[in-house]
Amino acid sequence: MAASEAVVETSFMDPFKDVLVNYLMPEKCYDEFFLQFNLLHVDCLKIVISKGLGIGIILGSVLVKLPQILKLLGAKSAEGLSFNSVLLELFAITGTMAYSLANSFPFSSWGEALFLMFQTVTIGFLIQHYGGKTIKGLGFLVVYFGLLAVLLSPVTPLSVVTTMQASNMPAIIFGRLIQAGTNYRNGHTGQLSAISVFLLFAGSLARIFTTVQETGDSLMAVTYIISSCCNGVIAAQVLYYWNSSPALKKKKKTQ
């Protein structure tokens, strides 16, 4: 009797299988979708949506603060932006990045922190530079990247990184409260970029789902919930002060 040959199932998506399995879904989900044509498999749909959102957030984060940077460069002013708020935001971003690396979380669950870090550091320097404190701004860059190198090195215990991540929540709250207070006192949002604010708000909302789905880490999930609430406050202020500007405010004061 002739030996029976195993039937190898194929799919029209096979040319893209490596890319899909490596970046978007596990192989079992590929089989469910493209071999069994079970397109409503709930667990696999959650994985694909989470991975897709994560990749989208990371790609978006490359440019999310670029409008803010360009606005500062164009105006040659950082009026309305709080350096202390930027420092606290940078602390939170750095904590998330270090904590995720230490716990070997997938890049799709935290990768935007890397790009946000570089952009936030740039904004911090520009605030100092346009405030007439360029030397202080350069010192800020040197100190930050020096501390970052130590934090990401093996000499830093996991307990320190975990504590830093836990401290993100008050850092985010105070950082956003400082910026919100600055906006309220000024009666406008100054050089704050509406595009960047809304993108950050949307990204932090999406991160709640991807964090729960990909890491299951409650500490990071709560951090993103708080971040979303705080970013929502700033976004609401941008809308409220939409028709206000530094020039208009000064004009009213002189009348």
Rank of each mutant, 00 (worst) to 15 (best):
M1Q: 13
S4Y: 12
S4T: 13
S4D: 15
P15N: 01
K17E: 08
V21Y: 09
Y23D: 07
C29H: 06
D31C: 03
D31Y: 12
E32V: 02
L35G: 07
F37E: 14
C44L: 08
L45I: 12
K46R: 14
I47A: 04
V48H: 06
V48R: 05
I49D: 06
G52Q: 12
G54E: 10
I55C: 08
I55A: 10
I57V: 14
L59K: 00
G60P: 03
Q68D: 02
I69W: 02
L70E: 11
G74Q: 04
K76H: 02
L81A: 06
N84A: 10
N84C: 09
S85N: 06
L88N: 01
L90I: 08
A92M: 09
T94Y: 03
T94A: 12
T96I: 11
M97Q: 08
M97R: 02
M97A: 09
Y99V: 02
S100P: 08
L101A: 00
L101V: 12
N103T: 01
F105Q: 05
P106A: 08
P106S: 11
P106I: 10
F107S: 08
G111F: 06
L116Q: 12
L116K: 00
L116F: 03
M117I: 06
F118T: 11
Q119P: 09
T120F: 00
F125W: 07
F125V: 02
L126E: 04
Q128V: 00
Q128G: 00
H129G: 00
Y130L: 07
G132W: 13
K133R: 15
T134P: 10
K136P: 11
L138Y: 14
F140Y: 03
L141T: 00
L141A: 00
F145C: 04
F145R: 01
G146E: 02
L147N: 09
L148A: 07
A149S: 15
A149E: 12
V150D: 06
L151V: 04
L152T: 06
S153E: 03
P154D: 07
P157N: 05
P157Q: 05
L158G: 00
S159Q: 15
V160A: 11
V160E: 11
V160I: 15
M164A: 03
A166Q: 14
M169W: 10
A171R: 10
I172C: 05
I173Y: 05
F174I: 15
R176P: 09
A180Q: 05
A180V: 13
G181K: 05
T182H: 13
T182W: 12
R185V: 10
G187S: 10
H188F: 08
G190C: 01
G190K: 03
Q191W: 04
Q191S: 13
Q191P: 13
L192T: 07
S193P: 10
A194Y: 09
A194D: 12
A194N: 13
S196E: 11
V197Y: 01
F198L: 02
R207Q: 09
I208P: 06
F209P: 03
Q213Y: 04
Q213G: 01
D217N: 11
S218M: 14
S218G: 05
M220Q: 07
Y224M: 00
S228C: 03
C229K: 08
C230I: 00
C230S: 08
G232Y: 11
V233K: 09
A235D: 08
V238C: 14
L239P: 13
L239F: 15
L239H: 12
Y240N: 04
Y241R: 02
Y241D: 04
W242D: 10
W242P: 12
K250G: 01
K251F: 11
K253A: 13
